[in-house]
Amino acid sequence: MNEFIINTLSLGSLYALIALGLVFVYGILKLVNFAYGEYIMTAGYGLFLLGTYTPLPWWSVMLLSVALAALMSYLTELIAFRPVRTKSLTAMLVTSFAVSVLLQNAALLFISPRSRAVQLPAAFNQSVALLGVTTPLRNLLTIGTTVALLVGLTLLMKYTVLGIAMRAASDKFSTTRLMGVPANLVISVAFIISGLLAGVVSVFWVGRSASVDPLIGFTPLLIAFIATVIGGMRSLVGAVAGGYVYGLLFNVLSITLPASVINYRDAFMFLIVILFLLLRPEGLIRGSYTEERVG
């Protein structure tokens, strides 16, 4: 039972970070960013390239890779999203889809279609005993890092002007600008935070498989969708809650589903998502605004 709790907390933490990164941009720009998974991929290749071809110590490889994801997120905002921001939501969606395809295929073209092994410090996978359970250190690190990040982000959002401005912008974007808050500033910061979270996610995600490939971002993107739908698209707290709920759901389904239908787990998850959206489009935690519904 303790093992189940630690596994679920660790998986839930990872999912919470994944969801949070997606919602940060959605909250401000109302953009479901399909390129989000590729920021995770970017950091993954950062780990691979810096870890393999430079003599840098592992901790600086990790920090640089996280920074690389943030940079990539910022660059996509600057080059692709900013010019289409005043156009329709569909135009932004198609742009994010195109950015996703572009980054994936750039990795295919310039690095390799095959997956690359990533060197992580051995301590990462070492087993430790806690509460009578032996678990990889990685799991505990995931939980610890998530808690630290959530505390940090909460402080940022609550006690800094920038945080207040970002909360205001996700509530009423136009009015926030009337306060003198530059639109580009809040949007860029949202993308940078989203990228940072993607980078941190990448360290732990890649840590699980110890390899990176061009399609590595797809599964986290799906996870982000499911978790944010469960938690509610509009609230950061909801995204975190959704991540943990999904982590729990995933582990429960993995244990309880018979082996013959385990391959359908993703389909099950998405059926749940669809039902959730139809029955409760605002998610578990209601944001300050409800999604527009037609009909």
Binding site: V32, F225, T228, M233, L271, E291, E292, R293, V294, G295
Partner: peptide, 24 residues
């Protein structure tokens, strides 16, 4: 039911539906 949703929720639902079809 899908047609009643719009914006972000609609997009994610349609995407999720594609995933379900693909998994099947």
């Amino acid at each position: 039911p899908l047609m009643r949703l719009s914006d972000a929720v609609g997009v994610i639902t349609l995407f999720a539906t594609l995933i379900v079809i693909h998994v099947l």
